[in-house]
Amino acid sequence: MAEVKESKKALFPMTKKERKLLFDPLNDNNPVTVQVLGICSALAVTSMLLPSIVMAIAVTFVIAFSNLTISLLRNYIPKQVRMIVQLVVIAFLVTIVELTLKAYSYPVYKQLSVFIGLIITNCIVMGRLEAFAMANKPWQSFLDGIGNGLGYGIILIIISFIRELFGRGTLLSGTPLEMKIIGASSDFWIDTTTNPYFGWYVNNNLMVLPAAALFIMGLIIWYQRSKNSKLVDIS
């Protein structure tokens, strides 16, 4: 056991501060539920798991590399034009993501439609560039970007898991791992037409509607803040 720990340390030599950068955004400083950034796209793509996983990866990629680029350039960017420089860097990375998706995964690209483009105006990206990358070293900025991307992704995946399971009775549909859990035909694991215990079950259509994402988001915030009293909004 001790040996495993030892080798892990050798693989990821991280100081305490760097670990904090990477894991803090997952809960205590979550970009979505605590900093209230990047909600627009977080809610719109979450009706199924597959598009939200793709979105989470895309956003993590964009935040991490834009943080890295801006941090490398931070001493050469004049203060007055920094917004434009940041937007150009972000737009360039988003274009890469868009073209890659279009080439390798066209159905997902169609499903996400305009929301890939909207990563440009995702406030998390701009927010991290302004608040972190403009003032910190490249490696730390890169870690901060990965951490924030994961913090965003985790919320997306929780919401879309609930919405897909209760709204359609499936999980990961559209991938080779598709699981059909519950529904009114013999394709599903639990067939509500024949199963003696689940005859009452009907998929909840509310979960497919956009409003459900907002309710689940509100409940996640409620849960998180009731566990973590220092986040409670006093005003």
Partner: peptide
């Protein structure tokens, strides 16, 4: 409103209800 829900949480839920009304 319950303290943990105050501010942001309740704003989300209201937006959801408004969304359903617009629906």
């Amino acid at each position: 409103i319950p303290a943990p829900l105050r501010g942001l949480g309740i704003a989300f839920i209201i937006t959801g209800l408004m969304g359903m009304a617009f629906m």
